[in-house]
């Protein structure tokens, strides 16, 4: 059943969706990273209002599932704001970005908090300002600790991009579904190839994550 010619037939079809999958991934990764740092730092702010407000964002997006958020935004954005965002691409990017941004903000917050307390004390003893302490001492160490989790969540985001096929985006899974509906008998091969294609996309991310793990093991205070 799995013949070379069938693979040659199917694979180029799937590749037509590659552009959407990759650009949605890149777009939502940028949104997520931005949100991660903004929200993560806001949650450490001394201002109660900022802290609570960001906390609300994080809780809402971590407390509900991505697919619900995607659908909700898909219907809500045009209705609530009376605007079309121009495309579903933005809906997908915003939903995935905000969702994983909420998760990653916890990574940012946690890493900053887990830099050993003595580091802050030493920076105080050297009379650094609060901003300098963060910029020169805490942040460079925290970023190293964040790397593996950022890698892991980027793989999660790649998996999440498959949901945009449900709001009519023509990504890899979309083309897989189209082919399956016209040729039911080929379904196993089609979905297998879809999985393989996602895995190929994930490979560099897996590699980066492992790289990040080895970097994070170095250069962080243990006491």
């Amino acid at each position: 059943m799995i013949t070379i010619s069938a693979i040659i037939d199917i694979f180029p079809q799937l590749l037509r969706g590659l552009g959407i999958t990759v650009t949605v991934l890149i777009g939502s990764a940028i949104v997520a990273y931005l949100m991660a740092f903004i929200a993560g730092l806001c949650r450490l702010s001394q201002n109660v209002l900022i802290r609570k407000f960001t906390g609300l964002y994080v809780e809402i997006f971590r407390g509900t599932s991505l697919i619900v958020q995607l659908f909700w935004l898909y219907y809500a954005i045009p209705m609530l704001f009376g605007i079309q965002l121009g495309s579903n691409w933005w809906t997908g990017v915003i939903a995935i970005g905000l969702n994983y941004g909420a998760y990653l903000s916890e990574v940012v917050r946690g890493s900053i908090l887990s830099v050993a307390k003595g580091q802050t004390e030493a920076a105080v003893a050297l009379n650094m300002s609060r901003f300098q302490r963060m910029r020169i001492v805490i942040f460079p160490q925290a970023v190293r600790m964040m790397l593996p989790e950022f890698g892991n969540y980027t793989i999660q985001m790649l998996k999440g991009t498959s949901l945009v096929s449900l709001i009519g985006m023509t990504d890899v899974l979309y083309y897989g579904d189209i082919m399956r509906s016209t040729n039911l008998a080929q379904a196993p091969l089609i979905y297998l190839l879809v999985l393989v294609l996602y895995f190929i996309l994930a490979l560099p991310l897996i590699w980066l994550t492992r790289k990040g793990e080895s970097i994070s093991k170095k250069g962080v205070a243990s006491g």
């Binding site: 790649l158 998996k159 979905y191």
Partner: peptide, 9 residues
């Protein structure tokens, strides 16, 4: 590292 949605399908 592959989407659960595809695995369900």
């Amino acid at each position: 590292s592959t989407p659960p949605l595809v695995q369900l399908f």
